[in-house]
Design a protein around this nucleic acid. Sequence first.
DNA 1: CGATCTTACGGGATTCGTAAACATA
DNA 2: TATGTTTACGAATCCCGTAAGATCG
Lengths: 316, 316
Amino acid sequence: MTPVTLRQMRAFLTIVRLGSFTGAARQLHLTQPALTVQLRQLEQTLGVRLLDRTTRTATPTRIGAEFARALAPLLAELETVLERVQDHAALRTGRVDLATLPSLASTVLPAVIARLRVSSPGLRVRMREAVTGPVGEMVRAGLVDFGIGGSVEEDGELEVQHLFDDPLLLIFPRGHAFAARRSVTLRQLLEVPLLLPEANSGIRHAVDQAFAALGLPVEPAQEAVSTGTLVGMVRAGLGLGVLPSTAVEMQVIPDLRALPIDDPPLTRPIALVRRAGRSLSPAAEAFLATLRECLALRGDLRPAARPRRPARRGDP
Amino acid sequence: MTPVTLRQMRAFLTIVRLGSFTGAARQLHLTQPALTVQLRQLEQTLGVRLLDRTTRTATPTRIGAEFARALAPLLAELETVLERVQDHAALRTGRVDLATLPSLASTVLPAVIARLRVSSPGLRVRMREAVTGPVGEMVRAGLVDFGIGGSVEEDGELEVQHLFDDPLLLIFPRGHAFAARRSVTLRQLLEVPLLLPEANSGIRHAVDQAFAALGLPVEPAQEAVSTGTLVGMVRAGLGLGVLPSTAVEMQVIPDLRALPIDDPPLTRPIALVRRAGRSLSPAAEAFLATLRECLALRGDLRPAARPRRPARRGDP
DNA sequence: CGATCTTACGGGATTCGTAAACATA
DNA sequence: TATGTTTACGAATCCCGTAAGATCG
């Protein structure tokens, strides 16, 4: 007792539509005898004669006609469902849900989205802004496909991949003595009033760690919650600020100057955060590929030799 | 590029439902590795990962979940459509549309319908009454599946099969001299006033032919259109009537008697009329089989060695 | 006689099950 | 370590195409 096959039913519908085995065989790229066998099997498993054949024409039985009428829309809908799935693979359709930091959301990622819209206009990107901690939580909760933010610790549920290092810049008024330099060192920061982001931010974490590595104490003259506030403070002469290059990028700062911090280079790590054991949609993969293209195009972000994630079960 | 298979999609849905390859394999009566292959092929042809597997559980991807949601009702509906077709083969469902003569519609065929209702309660029979000529036309026009009536000529569209010979009886008042006999001959009918059905009826045709075969003239004393009229005339003493046994059967005739007509036996042929080259539904076949059973049960209708119709293309 | 469907048969592909390797909790 | 998935491979099955047979107009 062989089960009914999609191929058999498609063959049946085609024969009914054309009223001929030979014509249907041509359309299906099959030999006519093969079609005969298909239909015979279908009739055998159903136990019902579906077509009355003469040498001239094949006309459906009453039961065959009822069957065809019920079957045609079902198979058509099945086709569209399958095509809709394949649209995801071809990037004609898809959605990318991601969580990221405000600084990236306003600078690097819009460029990625723009590039993606050109290559794959059918994709939609939904970007949610959050600070580093919540980015991980949003990923963990499955609210987003993945997150791009400061590094969080890897556990059983989260998998972290380093993406690039975002250089931190020192911001100060044009008239400051540093204006003549091409870069400053970490130690030199101790000699000026420092304006740093608040304690629980990823930037502050990177700054603190860098100083701690040198055994130096850090005492900011002032803390700021938002990038705009910090820029305003610098402009008001309250001190010299530290900001990520991506954040500086978006600010139009005619009266301020920015210098990289060297020796050691001060950066904050930006990583991809994804759920462990979960695969990404083709749309999400395309987004990440485009992101990496963008990182490669602009040399300033040091895309850091991509550490391939451990091979996962079923990967090609 | 292998096409998507029903089997693959059923496997996918089962895995999603159970959240496990092993469980799905058990339910599908398959080995678990076979299931893995099935799903891998499905994912390959669709180009999309549908399930994220760990050693513990298999959870659908977002795309996989959407696919399953769309697929499940489609496949379920397909199942019911297939079952509905198979119901015809199993005689759980079906309709028989037939045309027949009033005399048969009121006597023989109700017994057939009753018998059929016992063996196959799901079948419905729709019986249309007509005289012999129109029976053929109704079959030709496809208004009915088949007809049971007087013999019509076989042409390219109609196919005729003799079913049985319906004996014609002589009807007369109890007090008549024939009352002592067990049968009468054709010649003896010439000696009495005859009451015959109207000229274009199948019965009249049979009577005329029988007399013509013997070279005898026929002059009815009176013609009648309906069976009831003819019986009334006999009862009124207008003459002796000729009626088919099936017609007499239904009349309660306490004051009349009936005798078979021998030497030669006078009968009218009853035949199955069907469209040439068209197969009958299982329900119609069941009806005919039951009809033949009924004919075999009652010996009086001479079911005449069934002349098998010529084998048709594709017959088992 | 020509067009069409059916049957028969050999070659190639597909699919299953068994066994072993691999991964994760 | 135990459970569950993947990979590999031999055997059975299925399916197609070619060729010959049958049937109807």
